[in-house]
Design a protein around this nucleic acid. Structure first.
Lengths: 152, 152
DNA sequence: GCACCATCATTGGTGGCACCAACAGAATTC
DNA sequence: GAATTCTGTTGGTGCCACCAATGATGGTGC
């Protein structure tokens, strides 16, 4: 009995100009993705720190500059993240004996453990984010975005 | 010590954990997309204001609350954007005679003109962003992201 | 009528993020 | 050995998403 427009009364359509705009759609999706992961990480950590932990786990001890480069985080932002995680006991910091400029940052066992906890939380968020897509569609989405990223 | 990684000194590989993480890839792509559009808009406008202009152009005059809802912008953030564009002559603001609470915001001819200018600038940014993808791939990317968005 | 609640525009503020500039000290290059 | 590059660090900027509260207004149930 209710007309279509009536049903839509609570819905707020997005302008077609925006819906057709790749950068807009990408950004909106990123907003919800970040919201989901931020909530999943609750008060335990942040996306940035998770990225740093991931890099240290995969590449082993590295300087802060390298850590920033491979995660896309500014050197100055790496500093605060590293400091916080050193204080939490997740990272260890020592000067590079071969290069007096560098601080070598190392993942502690507690840090590795922490990383795995965060990884599980974030995995849940991914599922929540992509539940509308099939596994192959999710893969295709990631592949397309990766190609966009690598081309820049 | 001496190893292959030495040769790669200029390249900075991203951790596999991150590269396989949809939310990470989406966010990184959004960062570059936003950087490109922000640079395209230079000092002329912002992404938010473009979104508001697009909505007003497509849906006609509307209250600020509606404007915020259909663009996903917080009501409080709509205020500053509207004020700025009113001052620039792109928007007109008048009280709703039928509802004393609302401000009806209308796109002026200058605003419409401005919108079209911005639209062209942003279109260039899209091309720059997606130059690695074919048109059909770009469409598929937008479709996938749209489905993710609509499912949330 | 009237109390109650929803909605409006607006103010103010918060935290995170991406980014930039400058610095001293150490290393590398020429 | 001078010049240049790189490092960690400090400090700061601006945008963005988000939240809380408030006074004014509209609508609803009774």
């Amino acid at each position: 009995m209710a007309s279509l427009s009536e049903v839509d009364s609570t819905t707020h359509p997005t302008p077609a100009r925006l819906r057709a705009l790749p950068s807009w759609v990408i950004n909106q999706t990123a907003i919800t993705a970040n919201r989901l992961t931020d909530r999943a990480l609750a008060g335990t950590s942040s996306r940035r720190r998770f990225a740093m932990l991931s890099a240290l786990d995969e590449f082993g001890p590295s300087s802060q500059a390298d850590l920033g480069r491979c995660t896309g985080i500014d050197r100055s932002d790496v500093v605060t993240g590293v400091n916080a995680m050193v204080e939490q006991g997740f990272l260890r910091q020592r000067p590079d004996p071969a290069d007096g400029r560098r601080n070598i940052v190392t993942l502690t066992p507690a840090g590795k453990e922490h990383l795995e906890r965060l990884s599980a939380l974030i995995a849940d968020a991914q599922e929540e984010l992509l539940h509308a897509l099939s596994p192959s569609e999710s893969k295709m989405l990631v592949d397309l975005l990766t190609r966009v990223l690598d081309s820049g």
